[in-house]
Design a protein around this nucleic acid. Structure first.
Lengths: 228, 228
DNA sequence: ATAATGCATGACAATATCGTCACAAACATG
DNA sequence: CATGTTTGTGACGATATTGTCATGCATTAT
C-alpha cells in the first residue's frame, strides 16, 4: 500500500531531506515549496498526512491549514506543523486552528518519522505498514516480516537490518564500512569479515527462493543488491 | 543523458574549478565569464541549471536573472546564486528576483554539487543519476556498474578506476604518471609499465563490444580516450 | 634498411579477498 | 536450569586480482 505524505516547506535543503527520509521509510513523499504549490498538489492527490512549515513565503502555514480544514474532502487529514524556535508562541495558534501536532525546527528526522507513524496509526485505525520492496522481496519493517514471492522468510535481527539496508539502497554499492556503520552502529568494534559471514547467512536464508544471487559481491569494496 | 550546467562567473580560477568538479560528477559544464557571454551561450543552448555569481563585471547577477526569467523558453530553469560573504543582504534580493537558491562564497564544491543535484531532482522530477558517459560507454559510479551498448561489463577494481579516470577526462591525453597518481595514489611505488598491462586488460574487457580501440596510445607519453 | 625505442601481449607467481565451516560465547526462551 | 538461537571470530581452501617480466611487434630515428 502507498502512503502519501505531503511536505510543504520552502527551504529546499530541509524539504529534500524530509523527502529522502520519508522514502527511506517506505512512504511516498509529495513536495510543495509554497502554499499555492501545496493547494495545486491537493487538487491532484489526497495525501494521508501533511507536514506544513509555519513560515511559508506566500501564505502563512496557518492560512493553508485553514483552507484545508474548510475543504470537504480532505478536511480530516492529519497535519503536523513545523515552527522555528523563535516562533514558539505560534504553535498554540497553530494547534487551535487545526494542526494535530507541531515540531520545532531543526527537528530530528527520527522524531518526525515517529510522530508521522503515530498520527497515521490513529487516523487509519491500524498500524501503517512500513514496507520496503525490491522485485519480489517485500519487507514490512514495522511487523518485522520479510516475504519473498509471498512466502515468509525467517531472519535474525542482524540479517533483517542488513537486508533492510540493502532494500533502502537498491542498486547501490555499499562498502563494508558503510554497512558496519549502519547495521552495527558507529561505535562498535566489529571485524570487517563479520559482514561477510552475515551476508552468507542472509544469502542462505534467501536461497530457498533462489534470490540469494541478488546480493552481489564487489571485490575490494563491499556488496550491493541488484537483479543482474 | 546530458545534463548541461551553465556557470556564470568572472573569476577564472573559481569558474574553472567549478567546471572541473561538474565534469567529474558527470555533468556538462558550459562556461561564461560575463553576463553578455552568458546570454550568448543561452542563445545556443538551454542548460538544465544555471549557477550565477552575484558580482559580474558588466551587469549584476540580478539583472541576468531578470533577463532569464523574462525569456519565454528558459524562464523555468533553476538558478543558484553565488554571493561573497560581504554581500549577505543581497541574497534576499536575489531570491526575491527569481533565484532558486544561493550559496556563500567560498563555497564547498561538495555542497554546491549536492544542491545542484537536489534542484535537478526537483525540476526534472527524477533522480539525476551520477553517471559518466562517453559515446555508448555508461558508468554508474554509485552502483559501480559499467555498460557498453546497454550490456554490462565486468571490471576489476583497478580497471574500473582506470576507466573512470578516462571518462572524467575524455579526449584528454593522460600521461602515465598522471594515471599512476590518480588510480594508484600518490605514494605507491608501481612500475610505469604496469599501467600498460592494465590498459591492456581494460581494452580486453571492452573488446567484446568492439570499443577497445577507444583507448588510444600516445607514444612516449600515455593514453587517451577518444573516438578517432 | 637497420637499429633503437616503446608498446602489446601472454605467462607467472605473489597476494588479496572472499565463501564457507566450525566453534564458543552471549542471549533468549520456556 | 536446560535448550535452542543468534552472534562474532578464526581457519582454510578456492578464486580473483595484481604487479612484474620476457618476448615479439610496431613505430620512429638514423
Amino acid at each position: 500500500m502507498h502512503t502519501n505524505i505531503l511536505i510543504v516547506e520552502d527551504d529546499m535543503a530541509i524539504r529534500e531531506m524530509m523527502a529522502f527520509s520519508l522514502k527511506r521509510e517506505g512512504f511516498d513523499a509529495i513536495k510543495a515549496a509554497s502554499g499555492h504549490e501545496a493547494l495545486e498538489q491537493l487538487n491532484r492527490v489526497h495525501p494521508d498526512l501533511i507536514v506544513v512549515d509555519w513560515g511559508l513565503p506566500d501564505m502563512s502555514g496557518i492560512d493553508l491549514i485553514d483552507t484545508i480544514r474548510r475543504d470537504q474532502v480532505i478536511k480530516e487529514v492529519p497535519i503536523i506543523m513545523l515552527t522555528a524556535r523563535s516562533e514558539e508562541q505560534d504553535k498554540i495558534k497553530g494547534l487551535e486552528r487545526g494542526a494535530d501536532d507541531y515540531l520545532t525546527k531543526p527537528a530530528s528526522m527520527l522524531e518526525l518519522m515517529a510522530r508521522i507513524r503515530a498520527h497515521l496509526r490513529r487516523s487509519k485505525g491500524f498500524e501503517v505498514s512500513h514496507t520496503l520492496e525490491y522485485k519480489d522481496i517485500v519487507m514490512d519493517a514495522s511487523a518485522h516480516e520479510v516475504k519473498v514471492n509471498e512466502l515468509p522468510v525467517n531472519l535474525s535481527l542482524t540479517e533483517f537490518k542488513l537486508l533492510k539496508l540493502f532494500l533502502q539502497n537498491p542498486n547501490k554499492l555499499l562498502a563494508r564500512e558503510h554497512i558496519l556503520n549502519h547495521v552495527w552502529g558507529r561505535n562498535t568494534f566489529v571485524e570487517d569479515r563479520t559482514v561477510d559471514v552475515h551476508i552468507l547467512r542472509l544469502r542462505k536464508a534467501l536461497k530457498p527462493h533462489a534470490r540469494d544471487r541478488w546480493i552481489q559481491t564487489v571485490r575490494g569494496i563491499g556488496y550491493k543488491l541488484a537483479s543482474i
